[in-house]
């Protein structure tokens, strides 16, 4: 039997640990440091928690947080659409391979391209409303990206349209590796499509669902900047401002990286807090699966 010194494995791990500490740890420390300073250029005087105080009293920040939270509504919508479409494709409907590719195409497109195209389609006199008007549906021809009451939901719809493709491919890949005998047995037992989906398929997708939900939550909290910037630029009148845009404005436009760092720190902590129950849930599930 090969015998090694107790310290040897740690020595092997050390370079990677150092790399991780540097690549992930340094930015976190730098952000924490910046968030307590009034940065001009690359440094500035220590001002304690003043940046945080400024953020929490800022109505625009409150709006940004609220909008990120509203965008979380998209997560269950994307999940349901993705699962249903993946199951339909899994059942090998005629032309399923074509539809699989078609549904994945939006996800392949670059977000700025999607944003620019939809910002044209969704204008008051854009293609979508022209079609609605030509169909006699004038009252549904709304100002999709010019009306503060609905613009965030228009952006959310675009996000769902693009991001669903990833979910479909993810679930389809998992479905193709599940034991089809279980489904066949359910069919023999008289289970209808909905029952098979709910009682047989979804339980087997559990780990992928968890992964997709986590990824989607992170997307909605910290990965929607490109959509917002290209479709609405945070407007009209802050109606679509989100935390990322708030950070961008302070870091690069207002040249106050201290405040931007404070928001980034908050966003990091909030994301961790939201992720924690999910990881815990995942860990419990893994324990159950191991018996």
């Amino acid at each position: 039997m090969l015998r090694t010194n107790r310290i040897t494995p740690y020595l092997y791990l050390a370079p990677m640990v150092l790399l991780l500490v540097f690549t992930f740890g340094y930015p976190l420390v730098a952000i924490a440091n910046f968030s307590t300073r009034r940065i001009r250029g690359i440094s500035g005087p220590f001002i304690g928690l003043e940046n945080y105080r400024q953020i929490f009293k800022d109505e625009v920040f409150r709006q940004a947080v609220e909008h990120n939270l509203i965008l979380l509504i998209a997560v269950p919508i994307m999940l349901i659409i993705s699962i249903i479409l993946a199951v339909v494709l899994f059942e090998r409907i005629r032309g399923w391979q074509f539809f699989r590719s078609l549904l994945f195409v939006p996800y392949v497109l670059a977000i700025p391209v999607v944003g620019v195209v939809f910002s044209n389609i969704l204008q008051l006199n854009g293609v979508q409303n022209q079609i609605l008007r030509s169909l006699g549906l004038e009252r549904f021809a709304l100002d999709w990206i010019g009306n503060p009451q609905i613009t965030l939901y228009s952006v959310m719809a675009v996000i769902i349209w693009r991001e669903v493709g990833f979910g479909i491919v993810l679930f389809l890949a998992r479905l193709q590796s599940i034991n089809e005998e279980l489904i066949d047995a359910a069919k023999v037992d008289g289970a209808d499509w909905g029952q098979r989906l709910w009682f047989v398929i979804i339980p087997q997708l559990r780990s992928v669902i968890e992964f997709y939900v986590v990824i989607s939550i992170i997307t909605m909290l910290a990965w929607v900047f490109s959509y917002i910037y290209t479709i609405s630029r945070g407007g009209p009148g802050n109606a679509t401002i989100v935390m990322e845009l708030y950070i961008y404005n302070f870091a690069f436009r207002n040249q106050l990286p201290g405040i931007a760092s404070a928001v980034a720190a908050i966003l990091f902590v909030v994301t961790l807090i939201l992720m924690f129950p999910l990881f815990r849930f995942r860990s419990e599930t893994a324990m159950e699966e191991m018996g």
Binding site: V60, P148, G234, G235, P236, G237, N238, N249, R253
Partner: peptide, 20 residues
């Protein structure tokens, strides 16, 4: 100042046109 651009000028004109 840029903050005025993003938080006042940009917001005000759009909110007025939106009727808010």
């Amino acid at each position: 100042p840029v903050l005025f651009w993003t938080d006042a000028m940009f917001v005000n004109s759009q909110k007025i046109i939106a009727g808010e």
